[in-house]
Amino acid sequence: MDIKKNKYYKLWLKDAWPYITGAVLLSMFQIVTLAVTGNPWGVSGVLATWGAWMYETVGGSVDKWYYFASEGAQRTLEGGFINHGGSIRNIGIIIGALIATLLSSGFKIKKLKSWKQVVAAILGGLLMGYGARIGFGCNIGALFSGIASLSLSGWVYALFLFLGAIIGSKLLVKYFM
C-alpha cells in the first residue's frame, strides 16, 4: 500500500498539526523541562553560550564579561557542550524540525529572492539576538516561560511584542511589497 495515501500518515506526518495540539504539547514539554532540570525552557541563552564557545575556540576569553560572570555561567562554559542540557535541547529542536520536514517530504533548499532578504535577515537576527540578551530572554525564555511561571514580566513582554509586531508589519509592507 502506498504510504502517501495512508490516513494516519496524512494526519500525523504530512499535514500541519492544529495550533491547539502544538500549544498543548509545548506546555506539557515545558512542564517536563522545568520539573527535570529545575530551569524554565529557554532557547536564545544557549546561543549566547555557543557564541562564547566559538569565541574561546579562536582564542578569545569571556571570563571578564559581566554576562558570563556568574558561577553558574562559568560552570556551564567549562562543562562543555555535551554536559549542557540546553545545548542538547537546541540541537534536538533543529534535528527534530529536519526529521519532521523530511517525513512530510517538505524539504527544499530555497532560493534567495533578493539581497533585501539577506540584509533584512541579518539585521533582524542581530536585533533579535541583542534584544533577547539585553532583556534576559527571548519569546521562549521571557515570554512563554515567563507567563507560565506567573511572572508579570512575561505579560509586559507580550504587550511590547505586539507593539513591535505592528511596527514590524508596517516596515515589512513598506519594504517588501
Partner: peptide, 15 residues
C-alpha cells in the same frame, strides 16, 4: 511567492 516568508505571500495574495 517562491522564496518569500510569512506573511508576505498572504499580503500579496490579498492585494
Amino acid at each position: 511567492c517562491l522564496g518569500e516568508a510569512c506573511p508576505i505571500p498572504l499580503v500579496k495574495a490579498e492585494n
